[in-house]
Simulated scan of single mutants.
Amino acid sequence: MKSDPSISAAPLRGLGGPLRSSEPVRTALAPPPAVALLEEAADLLVVHLDFPAALETCERAWRGLASGVQAEELAGTSSEVKCSLCVVGLQALAEMDRWREVLSWVLQYYQVPEKLPPKVLELCVLLYSKMQEPGAVLDVVSAWLRDPDNQGLPEYRALADLHLQRVLLPLGRLSEAEELVGGSAAFGEEQRLVALQAIHTVRQQQAQEPVGSEEAQKLNQAGSFSQKFLSLLLLLRRLWDSAVSHFFSLPFKKSLLAALILCLLVVRFDPASPSSLPFIYKLAQIFHRIREAVFPPLCRLPIRD
């Protein structure tokens, strides 16, 4: 069963939800070959979910519209079919996760942004905004809104508000947003006040962000320093515990002998000399005090010479 060519704006299932537009797609008085291809492309997109084939069918229909006398004779009546082909094609690209190619694909047929149909431009804004890349359509929508021929269209007000809410404010282009709100007749008095309040709210958020980020950075630095200091203390404690356990694992007599030999090597005194006896006596007293302090009287083993 063929789908109705007037319902070519199918949901973008691959992006988690439909992109809705306020303008219906019409195909009245369109060339029969283009209508047949449009119906086939919509059927491939919605019913068969064959997105590459739907895109190829749209491109084939565009080549047919752009060739021969048909495009010149039916230039006015085929504009709606061109718009519908673009809608089906951009949704096929989005379903194939090729949404970044949508804008360039559409512009290759309309050449300049000012000539884009309002419905196609609206879907492009919704798509790139949904994918959190509104900057991709910033210049295109701005050029379209500045064109005098587009300012008289009934869709101009909706696109101006969509551009403000989905592109300018998320990008923080507040000066351009104020210029659009203040210099465009698309905004009524009440709508202008709401838009200016939204701009003021975004400006306050931007003013608070640097302070918050600076405080967060200081907290992160302090936390990092504390973590490093604790790691250093733990490392020193492990080294001290290892050295103490290694020292006390040796017999006391061997430790005393090793210390005495070390003193002989470093100080290089003669043990047989009378001048060295007071030093040896003091050294022995130090080791006895260390032994008494470390080992309790109940646990201390007698040292036998």
Rank of each mutant, 00 (worst) to 15 (best):
L126K: 05
I280M: 08
C86L: 03
E155R: 13
D97C: 12
Q132I: 13
I303E: 12
Y110H: 05
F269A: 06
A158H: 08
P297G: 11
L234K: 06
F279L: 00
D4K: 02
P117G: 05
S8Q: 08
L121N: 06
Q206G: 11
W105M: 03
S213F: 14
H200Q: 14
A61N: 01
L174N: 01
L260N: 12
D4M: 05
G14F: 00
L180R: 00
G152C: 06
P134H: 02
V266R: 07
L239W: 07
Y281K: 07
R98D: 06
S184W: 02
S255R: 03
V112E: 13
A259W: 12
P278Y: 02
A30T: 06
P33H: 05
A207I: 08
R98G: 04
R173I: 07
F248P: 10
P297Y: 15
S226H: 13
Y156R: 03
W99C: 01
L93G: 00
V87R: 06
D305T: 14
Q132P: 14
V194Q: 10
G182F: 01
L123M: 05
P154S: 09
L283C: 01
V294L: 14
E189L: 04
S224T: 12
A94L: 03
A293M: 06
V120D: 00
P271E: 06
V137P: 03
E80S: 15
E176D: 09
A94N: 01
S224G: 09
V211A: 09
R166I: 06
R238S: 14
R146V: 07
V266K: 07
R291C: 01
F225M: 10
V25L: 14
V244S: 09
L162M: 06
A272Y: 11
L45K: 02
L196D: 06
L123N: 04
P251G: 03
P118A: 15
K282V: 12
A71P: 08
F51G: 00
T27P: 02
P11V: 03
T27I: 10
R237S: 15
W240R: 12
K115V: 14
A66F: 15
G152V: 08
